[in-house]
Design a protein around this nucleic acid. Sequence first.
DNA 1: GATGATGTTGCATAGCTATGCAAAAACCGG
DNA 2: CCGGTTTTTGCATAGCTATGCAACATCATC
Lengths: 357, 357
Amino acid sequence: MTRRPVTSVDVARLAGVSQSAVSRAFSPEASISPAMRARVLEAAATLNYRPSRIPAIMLSGRSLMIGVIVGGLSNPFYASALEQVAVSLQASGFQVLLVHVDDALTLDAALNQLASYRVDAVITALAIGTRDTAEALSALNIPAICFNSRFVGRNISTITSNNRQSGAMAAKIMRECGVRFPVWLAGPARNAASRERRHGFFDALTDHALIDHALIDHALTSDTPSPHPILELQGNDTYESGFNAMRDLLDRNFRPDGLFCSNDLMACGAMDALRDHGGLACPKDVIVIGYDNIPQGAWHAYDLTTFDQRTEKLVDAAMDILNDAFRPGAKALSRKIVVAAALVVRRSTAKAPPQVR
Amino acid sequence: MTRRPVTSVDVARLAGVSQSAVSRAFSPEASISPAMRARVLEAAATLNYRPSRIPAIMLSGRSLMIGVIVGGLSNPFYASALEQVAVSLQASGFQVLLVHVDDALTLDAALNQLASYRVDAVITALAIGTRDTAEALSALNIPAICFNSRFVGRNISTITSNNRQSGAMAAKIMRECGVRFPVWLAGPARNAASRERRHGFFDALTDHALIDHALIDHALTSDTPSPHPILELQGNDTYESGFNAMRDLLDRNFRPDGLFCSNDLMACGAMDALRDHGGLACPKDVIVIGYDNIPQGAWHAYDLTTFDQRTEKLVDAAMDILNDAFRPGAKALSRKIVVAAALVVRRSTAKAPPQVR
DNA sequence: GATGATGTTGCATAGCTATGCAAAAACCGG
DNA sequence: CCGGTTTTTGCATAGCTATGCAACATCATC
């Protein structure tokens, strides 16, 4: 086994032709006679030769690699999103250079790596919140696409779900179900999407003033941080945080009858706490709404009403941006795209409205 | 915005030094004076220059990229495995070139892509069963590492969980719980790991002859494929397949009291069917054992006893293989490593043995 | 100050493929 | 068979960085 990989010159020598001929044999559009191509391909097969894209990267300035930055693949939503991104990129002839990131520190190093491998663009599903990271992204001077991030900047495009309207929709469901003690289970504070969902939810609920403020205020103990009439719990997007937050609430003898969670993982955790810790039945005693439409939400143990972000549409939008960005003569673009989420109604909100409309 | 990326020559010109100096400024071991380095780095910062690894790939013959082939990220086990592989590879200074594969057809194309990008090695968690794919992998002439695949070949190393012993361990638990009507819920037939688990489970159960054959035989209808005294259900590693298989069994009025599933997703599905469709309580009426230790198995709705494959050990083993393979003067290696799975006992098997020992 | 040792810098080149251009070949019509 | 047209082939080169080597500078030592 020779360590050096087979080169086009090796093939050319074996076939008794020039190196250019070998190159052309592997290029479908090239001008080459069928006889020549056959001869070359035969020699190539003998040596098990495959043309390298590395020199082509230098010449063309296009690596056809897209840097994909991920974090938290333990959330099935992100795992699935990554899968769809990978499939779409491959279908468009791109390669995926994957980078996993834990914190902002790693991100900087990751961006350096991606830059040195000359990726043509970057796609990330991280909640890029800080100005620093956005600027670092901009400085790469290549198209960047962020999912569910609010940040805009030169060369940065964002694709988000219509989080605010979805929040309002959740509020509408609460009203229709006659919810009197609504609870909002928030994701991490730095998550822009979570903040938007909260915004829409709170605004729509308080606007319509269908909440029994007095009762809720009464239920709030002094150390509750939220100044709103809707009870707010703090989570961090994991099942455990949802379970714990709800368990603590139940321990304080608060019995919600409506719960909107910033994502499905927390919703599942909260539902388990409601059932096992509070003895509350869903949807009879409490209705629950999540976000993301992860497969687990459809499992019979949960049967969770949720919002589907339509990842396929998000990903399609990303592909459109890439195509536009690479069109010859294209300028740096920073587009902002919002895709409407689709409400998926399941049993967790199947409560007959107790009051006549 | 100039389309052409900044080059080391640009930096050299601005700093008034040679191109070599720029290169050395970015190479920690290089012989260069602090003054020179500072000057270069300043110019580089001005131009936002980062050295490209592309020419270095050509010169060194090492891309430091590892091709990672995945499929079925909707299984949290694989998503998590990918995450850990990515983290470890990055920590070792490698990049991850990710390829998603649906079927064998795509795999061939994927291998060609990886080869043309000159990845230094390939890691895959696919169940590579056919001889063709293994040969294609071998033909790449680079180290290949397969998780949970039985195939061996030149340059192919395999890392598997000790599936057979785990199966035997599951049988032991069944015996201790006094199970009389055991059921095996299999993964796809082409999944080598699933076959091994079945093997260990069946052997250990029949060896000890603690199963009430007559009763089980009676329960088997004529069209049941399995010739064994243990009832065998066919799944495809998804929640739905587990749910459906169990529901169909219950519809035929069979009431199992012990269930071993080839993976946790199917176990969760089967548990939901047992509860909602058969009215059976776990662990009182039926005990359930899964495989993989996905987070969902720990959720309160399931609380599933399962086998943890110790992904961190599998991944460490993979890193060891890579390091050895890249050691100067190393020969092609095809190692076979087996890592013992760790039994995680939870409530789904918490049944007091009814019979005195 | 001469000598040698050590440290620093620049020059030149390798690495592999795609492609513009020119040369050669093939083909075609008369 | 010949000039012209089209097709095919080979030559030469670009693309960017790391590094061996030589040249040069610096420094210490006697």
